[in-house]
């Protein structure tokens, strides 16, 4: 009789779970919650703004114009022979997906401390919903970039997209999401203890952008120093995007493989830390 009961427990609450026990099945059961978080992010951000969703387009547009004026016209940085406007826009749009994944997931614990303290749901639902809502933003912004690229082509600028690489681009998006998520949840886990990191994130992402070929092409870096830039896992992704859609860029299968492995490692490390922290952080916040 007792044995029979033992088998029927639907939940056992214990001190620590296994390191890699991420309970992804449970996350799947909460998919409606993820969807609602995504919706909340969209609806709440632009409520009470005049331009509303138009901000999704204005932001990258203004960044691109700024880059074109400062780095293109004043500093005259090379752009692999591509029209400056398209070159910077591709960089800015792709980069902003990575940076928004990273900065927003890095706030997971601090921003939601109140919520997490009152009710249980798989904590991963928050970062995952951030990846999705950022992805939607990215798709909208990237569509705008593609329209501009088409416009330039119609005006006679020679642009040679590589269809095979374009077909591969979802993989690049997954890699960026993974990198953003991995770094983000590591930082968010550490911010429960060290609040300093919150300030470092803003600044760090900004600096990292300059260490990534967003405003310059890899080809403009002297051969001797290229390894430094290529050590950055975001480099090959941005160059791959440019190569796919605009036909110019320095990519190799090796460097993409490197970024992919980097992403897998960082997501694994992040998940383990996140898993550990989510069980105890209510006691330290």
């Amino acid at each position: 009789m007792i044995n029979l009961e033992e088998e029927n427990w639907s939940l056992i609450i214990e001190p620590q779970r296994g390191l890699l026990d991420l309970r992804l099945g449970e996350l799947w059961r909460y998919k409606d919650l993820v969807a609602l978080f995504v919706r909340r992010d969209f609806v709440s951000i632009y409520k009470q703004t005049i331009l509303g969703p138009l901000w999704y387009l204005i932001q990258p547009l203004l960044t691109t114009i700024t880059f074109t004026v400062i780095f293109g016209n004043i500093a005259s940085l090379p752009t692999d022979g591509l029209p400056q406007f398209l070159f910077y826009m591709s960089g800015a749009v792709v980069w902003s997906y990575f940076s928004s994944c990273l900065t927003k997931t890095s706030e997971t614990f601090v921003q939601n401390a109140n919520l997490f303290g009152k009710v249980y749901f798989p904590r991963l639902a928050v970062p995952v919903s951030i990846l999705i809502s950022s992805l939607i933003t990215f798709i909208i912004q990237f569509a705008m970039f593609v329209l501009f690229a088409l416009y330039f082509t119609l005006r006679g600028t020679p642009i040679q997209p590589n269809w095979l690489w374009i077909a591969l681009s979802p993989i690049f998006i997954i890699m960026m999401a993974g990198l953003g998520l991995g770094f983000g949840i590591i930082i968010s886990s550490l911010t429960t203890k060290y609040r300093d990191l919150r300030f470092m994130v803003q600044f760090g992402v900004q600096l990292l952008m300059y260490a990534t070929p967003v405003i310059y092409p890899v080809s403009s870096i002297p051969q001797r120093f290229q390894w430094i830039i290529l050590a950055n896992p975001m480099t090959s992704i941005i160059e791959a995007f440019r190569y796919a859609f605009l036909g110019a860029g320095t990519v190799s299968v090796n460097s993409l493989l490197y970024s992919f492995c980097f992403m897998v490692v960082i997501v694994a490390v992040g998940s383990v830390i996140f898993n550990r922290v989510e069980q105890t952080f209510m006691d330290t916040v």
Partner: peptide, 25 residues
């Protein structure tokens, strides 16, 4: 808080049969 899985116990365990919903707020 332990029952609602907001925080983990230091030792020991709770076994539960059925879905738990907690209203702490």
């Amino acid at each position: 808080k332990i029952l609602s899985r907001v925080t983990a116990p230091t030792s020991g365990r709770i076994k539960v049969k059925g879905r738990i919903a907690s209203l702490l707020e």
